[in-house]
Design a protein around this nucleic acid. Structure first.
Lengths: 334, 334
DNA sequence: CTGTTAGCGCATTCAA
DNA sequence: TTGAATGCGCTAACAG
């Protein structure tokens, strides 16, 4: 098979310890000796075996990412950010899909840890706070993305959905809307709840009450967005703006509104959430909120590496990212 | 740290070999002994260290995926398929982005191999056939996705872009179009070339000549699609249908056509390629060609595992996947 | 059926 | 500055 440290040592006429030193740039090695060894390394195409390396040094050089579904754009962006940061830190990235199953999340954590991941990034939708806390205690290099749990604040790289949703709702109101509908996800996990409650709060402060008849729920995809609009239209309550849980639902909403003869945004405005590619694909292009997942991913990697070397030594600092409204065409401006 | 095989052996009062046997289900172990050991394993939460495992057994249990950019939907789907297959085969997935850089592809291959990936899946856009052949010789478990190189036919899991493009072009012609424009990518890698030449051939067989004035090129994204239409409109040649290199360009084309007062598909039809989510987001929804990347990914994993255990032992069989037209709304039907 | 032993490839003492 | 020796956690003969 491929050359080992022994082969290099033999050919170079030195000990494996010396080869190890030149490979890792640690310890003292004579200048000419270093050159000679390096030459052999290049000639033989020697690459250290990372299993042996991590076994011997008890240092893990892998970082694990657990995501519900890597094929979704949001998680793809998360993975891309993590990958970039791994590359910079000369670490390898292991990926595991949890397919929205709580048990799979826990298994993945265990599995990745045993595969030499000292740092891990977890996007968890369904694990309870207590479970999350337990996991953080068990794995010092674990970082939680897109959740905030006060007890492990320093382990959370998160985004304030409530606040972002308030911003968005205010933006809609400030552009003249008072009859506002909200499209939420049928899956009652955190994000939809937070975004709905943020919108409610913001509207409440403007003396607008977001009540049941103007809230529709369905699956968090294009089809779900269409279903919601069908339902709202059937109910017959007036609305001039729609705030959707995410861009996919917003796009579905636009489709269904157009199909029913409404013009977006002239008759009805629609805004989404995430700033995903579908928002740029639909006509009119979608006004939405940017979720800085790529930046968060990079940050999370740094944090997890630091945590892993600190043995999870935690400060009180948390890691909160903020949003930004992306103004495009689907919200009519005053 | 976490429990090792030694801890389990000590507590259970057996040798490490026995523990190894029950963990791996290999060899003979007495029934009650197995139960006892298993109990200790569970109590201690023992998880085999995979570095030690692969070092000792000289078996690699990782599979590597090299992709230009994991955040793109197409590659995300590729990754998802690979991940699913890895899960079934109880292997870990390592991911590396090559960012469309040839050198990065080679580095990633080396790096992944040294990280214990005996199986690898590579999506290469820019490596030459000769390089690809060399890599396949070097890495017995390497499978190439989305390229066909005759000399290593058995290592290629591919899709016939030329043929698929011919199908699509025929479909367009059969629905009454004769004035057809083609939008291609400014990056002259394989896929755009194949799709363009496939369209040319199909049209040629119908006595339609796809000539320069009706071919526009730009970046392979939404913006590029818009640019192409701008250019075509400026040139002033008549066309009633547009075939785009991919869905993103097709969506951009639709946007620009609509902006210029054309109705799609009533005035001008547009078709894309890939069946990506943006095609379902635009209005009208895009008629396109399904690229079965998910199936191909799963297949590629099986193949690479088999190849790795065969030491690259190659048959003459190649692995070709076929396409399917996805009929939606952006092509007016006869 | 079970235990003993010898490495896998490397980093890291400790001597020299 | 360099080398020899040890062990990381595990598997795989080989004995018994």
């Amino acid at each position: 098979m491929s050359a080992t440290i022994n082969d290099v040592a033999k050919v170079a006429g030195v000990s494996t310890a010396t080869v190890s030193r030149v490979v890792n740039g640690k310890g003292k090695v004579g200048a000419e000796c270093r050159l000679r060894v390096q030459k052999i390394i290049d000639e033989l195409g020697y690459k250290p075996n990372s299993s042996a390396k991590s076994l011997a040094s008890n240092k893990k050089l892998n970082i694990g990412l657990i995501t519900p579904k890597i094929s979704m754009e949001f998680f793809g962006n998360l993975a891309a950010g993590v990958e970039a940061a791994c590359r910079e830190s000369d670490r390898s990235l292991l990926i595991s899909n949890s397919r929205y199953e709580q048990e799979a999340e826990v298994n993945a954590l265990e599995s990745l840890a045993s595969k030499g991941c000292d740092s891990m990034i977890l996007h968890s939708d369904y694990m309870s706070n207590d479970n999350l806390i337990a996991c953080c205690n068990k794995y010092p290099g674990l970082v939680i993305v897109n959740r905030f749990v006060p007890e492990i604040a320093n382990r959370c790289v998160w985004f304030d959905n409530i606040n972002a949703s308030m911003q968005l709702a205010n933006y809609v109101v400030n552009n003249g809307h008072t009859d506002i509908a909200f499209l939420t996800s049928i899956y009652r996990n955190r994000d939809p709840q937070d975004r709905l409650s943020g919108a409610k709060q913001a509207l409440f402060l403007k003396n607008i009450f977001l009540k049941e008849p103007l809230i529709a729920e369905s699956t968090a995809n294009i089809k779900g967005g269409r279903e919601c609009i069908k339902e709202l239209l059937k109910r017959g309550n007036k609305f001039t703006a729609v705030i959707a849980y995410n861009d996919l639902m917003a796009v579905g909403a636009i489709h269904e509104l157009v199909k029913n003869g409404y013009s977006v945004p002239d008759d009805i405005s629609v805004v989404g959430f995430d700033d995903s590619i579908v928002g740029r694909a639909c006509i009119p292009e979608l006004t939405t909120v940017k979720y800085p997942i790529n930046d968060m991913a990079k940050y999370a990697v740094e944090l997890s590496i630091q945590l892993a070397s600190n043995k999870g030594n935690t400060t009180n600092k948390t890691h909160l990212f903020t949003s930004e409204i992306v103004q495009r065409e689907s919200l009519k401006l005053l």
